[in-house]
Amino acid sequence: MKIKLIHGFSNKTRIQILECIKDEEKTVSQIVEEIKGNQSNISQHLACLKGCGIIIGRNEGKYIFYSLRNQHIRDLLTMFDVVLEDVENDVACCERHID
């Protein structure tokens, strides 16, 4: 189960999406515009994040507003930043590091 959860955080686009909706819910169009992605790709990543239980969607009319599932997910994103500050030089030097 942990592997599936961690998989949700293991892609650059998914992290960009999570950062985009960290403070407020947004529609697919708003996310696409903010992170400069394409709608099909973003929608696939949203489905992954929703399937992993990391985000939720709220229907309003013809729109779906996406947000983080709860404060724990928000805290986890913040913790990633805190840990990264400690290890960023090592991460930058990692030969297997993927942007």
Rank of each mutant, 00 (worst) to 15 (best):
M1K: 13
M1V: 10
M1H: 14
M1C: 08
M1E: 15
M1S: 12
K2Y: 14
K2H: 12
L5G: 07
H7T: 10
G8V: 01
F9I: 02
F9T: 00
S10E: 05
N11V: 05
K12T: 02
T13I: 05
R14N: 02
R14Q: 04
I15D: 08
Q16R: 05
I17G: 02
L18R: 02
L18F: 10
E19M: 15
E19Y: 15
C20N: 10
C20A: 10
I21V: 01
K22G: 03
K22Y: 09
D23W: 11
D23E: 11
D23T: 00
E25H: 05
E25L: 01
K26R: 05
K26H: 06
T27E: 03
V28R: 03
S29G: 11
S29K: 06
Q30T: 05
Q30F: 14
Q30P: 10
I31V: 03
V32M: 04
V32P: 01
V32G: 04
E33W: 09
E33S: 13
E33V: 09
E34K: 01
E34N: 04
K36I: 09
K36G: 06
G37H: 06
G37I: 07
G37F: 00
N38D: 09
S40W: 11
S40M: 07
N41G: 14
N41P: 09
N41I: 08
I42F: 13
I42W: 12
S43H: 10
Q44C: 06
Q44T: 03
A47Y: 10
C48L: 14
C48Y: 12
C48F: 12
L49C: 00
L49K: 03
K50V: 01
G51Y: 00
G51K: 01
C52T: 09
C52F: 14
I54Q: 02
I54W: 07
I55K: 02
I55Q: 04
I56Q: 13
I56T: 12
I56W: 11
G57P: 00
G57L: 01
R58Q: 14
R58A: 13
N59S: 15
N59F: 15
N59Q: 15
E60T: 03
G61Y: 06
K62W: 15
K62D: 15
Y63L: 12
Y63S: 08
Y63W: 09
Y63K: 08
I64E: 06
I64H: 08
Y66H: 11
S67V: 04
S67L: 02
S67G: 14
L68G: 03
L68T: 07
R69V: 08
R69T: 05
N70R: 01
Q71E: 14
H72S: 14
I73M: 00
I73N: 01
I73T: 05
I73S: 00
L76C: 08
L77R: 01
M79H: 13
M79D: 12
M79G: 05
M79F: 14
M79R: 14
F80Y: 15
F80I: 15
D81A: 13
D81Q: 14
D81V: 04
V83R: 03
E85D: 12
E88G: 06
N89M: 06
N89T: 07
A92D: 14
A92C: 07
C93Y: 11
C93K: 12
C93H: 11
C93V: 08
E95R: 07
E95N: 06
H97S: 13
H97T: 10
I98D: 13
I98Q: 12
D99N: 09
